[in-house]
Structure formats: C-alpha cells, structure tokens
C-alpha cells in the first residue's frame, strides 16, 4: 500500500531529500518496500497505479522492442532511472546499449517511452520538462486512450525543441535507432 498522497503544502517551499536519504528510508522501513514513487528535485511523488489498458500497451511494446531492436541495444520496463543527487524517475521503457543498464545516463538513453493513461497530463507536462532538463534525447508519450504518440526531440533547457503527434497507423522510428520501426496500430486493444 502506498502512503497517502498530499498537496497540502502546495506553493510553499518544502524540504528536499536526496536519493541517498530516500534509499536509506526504504532500508530503515520508514518508506515501505512496496511504495512506488519518483523523486523529483527532492520531492517524493508517488506513481499512480496503472490501468489495464496501460498494461496491455506495455506488454505489446515489450514484445515489439525485444523483437525489433538491433542486437547492440536493449530495453527494460519500469526501471529506476537515477538522474541526479535529488532526482530519479521510472520510465515505462528505456532503450540503451546492451549490457549497460548500470551505466544508464541521459546520454546513453537512446529512447524513453511513457504510456500515459491517468498520468497523461503529467507525462506531457512536468515530466516531459524533467526529461528535457536532463537532456534525454528522445521521449515518446503514448496516449493510452487514442494511441497517439507525442514524439519529443531536441531537448533545450527545460523543454523539447521538437514536439510532434504521430497517430497509430503511422510508423514511429527513433532518431538514434533507424533500424526500429513501430506502428501502434498493431496493438490489439
């Protein structure tokens, strides 16, 4: 069970925690092992539970990526992506050089994918900002309802210079993985 969420101190400056402190809290048991959250600039933001539609899309993407990625690349779902001393996120997928998960960094992350159902507004808004801030080269945000993919490229400061919607039925090819082509129309929802 997740701890309760709050917006009680919205607008007020709040005490930040570091990655190290948060890991220690989990070790101590103050934060439960089963709690799922991201650490955003020192603030602990619980991850909302995923709907079944989200999971069906995720399952399809796993298969597609595993089959379609060139041999030298690898993907992992829902890994903790440590970005700085006070920030980690949990993308639905990251694609990186095979065998290099431990060294995953904004530079080695060739593609990040978020499937947005209840979290769509966050994924397209604040979350995309965070990806851009840390210089992750390409982010796809898939709208779980419409299967439209919002392709973000060219991170500059805290935004992406290029943001483009691609509908299901159109092929998606990441800029740095030209061998891969995905069409979400193949998902059997």
């Amino acid at each position: 069970m997740n701890a309760p969420f709050t917006l009680a101190a919205e607008g007020l400056p709040r005490r930040p925690f570091t990655v190290k402190q948060v890991l220690r809290m989990v070790e101590m048991g103050v934060i439960g092992h089963d709690e799922r959250f991201e650490l955003i600039g020192g603030g602990i933001a619980p991850v909302s539970p995923k709907g079944i539609r989200h999971e069906i899309i995720k399952a399809w993407i796993i298969e597609t990526l595993v089959r379609g990625l060139p041999k030298h690349l690898q993907t992992v779902p829902e890994t903790t992506f440590y970005l700085s001393d006070d920030t980690f996120i949990e993308p639905d997928f990251v694609v990186y050089p095979r065998g290099k998960l431990a060294e995953l960094s904004p530079q080695s992350c060739l593609l990040a994918i978020e499937i947005g159902d209840s979290s769509l507004a966050y994924d397209l808004g604040r979350k995309a900002e965070i990806y851009a801030q840390f210089g992750i080269g390409e982010l796809w945000v898939i709208n779980a309802r419409t299967l439209v993919t919002c392709v973000h490229r060219d991170p500059v400061d805290d935004r992406y210079g290029s943001v483009e919607d691609v509908e299901a039925g159109m092929a998606l090819t990441p800029l740095r993985i030209p061998e891969l082509s995905i069409d979400l129309a193949g998902i059997d929802l």
């Binding site: 607008g11 400056p13 930040p16 955003i40 600039g41 909302s48 006070d86």
Partner: peptide, 11 residues
C-alpha cells in the same frame, strides 16, 4: 524545493 509542484506528494 518546489520541483514536484502540482504533483501528488508523499504525506
């Protein structure tokens, strides 16, 4: 920090 502004946060 206000980095997680607008997001639900752990209570």
């Amino acid at each position: 920090t206000q980095a997680a502004e607008g997001l639900m946060r752990r209570a």
